[in-house]
Design a protein around this nucleic acid. Structure first.
Lengths: 243, 243
DNA sequence: TTTAAATGTCTATTGATATAGACAACCATA
DNA sequence: TATGGTTGTCTATATCAATAGACATTTAAA
């Protein structure tokens, strides 16, 4: 773990150190022992006081990533990121496979509204056309992984909220509404800091990173059936694009 | 710009506010006026003191995103993110198209070394096989956009560093070495906070976000020809995946 | 030329962050 | 049961981040 930490930059040292340790854990740097190095060692590595390292470890413990045990050391509790394959046949729930025991999609709210410019552009509708909007959160083993705003043409998928609530999956909800198959047409990916809504929805700590995807699915004739803006907790996921 | 800012979280308020304003600019929130709202208005929106907003704006001015003019207001200097299409035929330099006037790839260092486990797995070589490693930085209009570590099988592409230095492009370097065409096989995308090396290479401020891609290209027979780990300044780019 | 609105500068104070040192409590093991 | 290594707790101090208020300076428009 080379490289020093940066001072006077608006990001507290303990937070920078927490980020670095989290990354090192995820990269498997401590797999041999299953433990984080002692606080005094980390303090020397980063060139900071032991108390600063302790603040960082306390934050990681709060996230459930490590557990400090007096007299023994700091044990690593959890290290993997979920991998989401993105392809023409991207399926959120089933794409996870055996990476988590349980994958659920929860419907928070839904409403019928008029498409604004952005939604209309993605769904190739006239602005003002009726669309169904759903706000959802997906959880892997009861831990939130992503929150999404997703839109469907209202004329075709009026029953979407009900179907999603029952099936907890977009794929199964589409099937229930008479659309057995669909394909991913476009995905945009960017990253930003979590805002207040992310912190609540994804149970993050401020300063955390979210990966933002904007995706459009079509039916087999190429007609848009769904537009979704999804925000992922960046320290819990990665994407894979296979061609 | 709804949502308040978070206190006591290791991320200074001025930095959180700078991130929010940067995002709002990028989303086109201030396109009508081409200016950021007055400091007093922003302070009221975020529920902080005007001096805190001033710190945020000073940081954005440092990045060259805005320019404050006494008596007039704070002008937006630059708002676009570069969009990188990712597909079977992903090309970094040409993919930018007209988004920047000039796109250059600079070779920092290169070396012949033995493939470690990760590199060997991606290039489908035996661990220990000779590979060429290059460290590069790509700039759009002289502004760093990404830094990359990239590996090539040494047996086949010994002349890569020279070719890259001359052509400033992987595609043209491959062509010069007798590989006229290649395809993107796999891309992994994740996000993390910038480390010390990123700060220097990409001219970022600490706390910034980097998008990390791990990509493998093959020739038309499916034989791996390149593995690259690329780190992008997240506030300057987004990715688009077209199927 | 006046005025309103905006950014720039200064001082003072409070709370969060980081350092420093000392010692207690606990665990594994020699 | 000692001992070394580790995390936990406490006090004290210095620096950075944020608030508060006052006033100067500049610009554009009335």
């Amino acid at each position: 773990m080379a490289g020093q930490v940066q001072r006077q930059t608006g990001v507290a040292l303990w937070r920078q150190i927490a980020d670095r340790i989290r990354q090192a854990i995820s990269a498997g740097a401590y797999d041999e022992t299953g433990m984080v190095p002692p606080e005094t060692v980390l303090a020397a590595q980063f060139g900071v006081n032991r108390h600063t390292v302790r603040s960082a470890i306390a934050a990681l413990a709060q996230e459930g990533i490590v557990r400090a045990v007096q007299g023994r050391g700091t044990l690593i509790e959890r290290k993997e990121r979920l991998n989401f394959p993105i392809s023409k046949r991207t399926r959120f729930t089933s794409g996870i496979g055996e990476q988590a025991r349980e994958m659920r999609g929860l419907l928070l709210t839904h409403a019928e509204e008029r498409a604004d410019e952005e939604v209309a552009r993605w769904l190739k509708l006239a602005p003002g056309t009726a669309v169904i909007r759903m706000e959802t959160v997906r959880k892997a083993d009861n831990r939130p992984v992503s929150s999404a705003s997703t839109w469907f043409p209202a004329a075709r998928f009026a029953g979407m909220p009900d179907a999603y609530e029952k099936t907890e999956s977009i794929t199964r909800a589409f099937a229930a509404l008479g659309l057995p198959d669909y394909v991913r047409a476009t995905t945009e990916i960017s990253a930003t800091h979590a805002d207040a809504a992310d912190l609540a929805a994804l149970e993050l700590t401020p300063g955390a990173i979210v990966l933002v995807t904007k995706a459009m699915n079509t039916d087999l004739e190429g007609v848009p059936v769904q537009y979704a803006v999804t925000r992922f907790a960046a320290d819990r996921v990665q994407f894979t694009i296979e061609n």
